[in-house]
């Protein structure tokens, strides 16, 4: 393959990942605004935005290869985002459960209650006086 062909293929790949990334990021934020329930809203940004930014980082890696200074540094940010996104999502879920700003979940099938709603150690949880929020 001639160098021109390689450059053209890389350019097309950069364009595709830029467009995919931009569309998914936009859909993530649009879902955040559109959906009407606190738990439903959690679905759009945690996944679509993570994938969208992942595609933008892929475009950046390809761009570095197109400039003949190959580097894989962006893969580090990608891995970090994909590892931390579920943790943030679960923390926000726990806030929703704690503030009662969502549907009441069903009882667990084998244990007594869910960890967030467990008030047995209420002595060291000073947030107990908070009243349930109204949406």
């Amino acid at each position: 393959m001639t160098p021109e062909t390689v450059t053209l293929i890389l350019d097309i790949a950069i364009t595709i990942s830029l467009v995919v990334g931009a569309v998914f990021t936009l859909v993530g934020s649009f879902g955040l605004l559109k959906l009407d329930d606190a738990m439903k809203r959690l679905h759009a940004p945690t996944k679509a935005s993570t994938l969208g930014v992942g595609a933008l980082l892929l475009a950046s890696i390809l761009g570095a290869f197109a400039r003949d200074e190959p580097s894989l540094q962006e893969a580090l940010i990608m891995a970090f985002l994909f590892v931390t996104a579920p943790i943030s999502a679960q923390f926000i879920c726990k806030v929703n459960l704690h503030r009662r700003s969502c549907m009441t979940p069903p009882e667990p099938s084998s244990d007594s209650t869910w960890a967030t709603l467990d008030t047995a150690d209420a002595g060291d949880a000073p947030a107990q006086h908070l009243t349930p929020e109204k949406g």
Partner: peptide, 28 residues
């Protein structure tokens, strides 16, 4: 498992039961 459930779209893992025998998942 919880991370996988959250990243695969349509489901978010929300909480674990107090003894760790059940997982609470929200499906869109």
């Amino acid at each position: 498992l919880a991370g996988t459930i959250t990243l695969t779209p349509g489901t978010v893992s929300a909480d674990l039961s107090d003894e760790g025998h059940c997982l609470l998942v929200h499906a869109l």
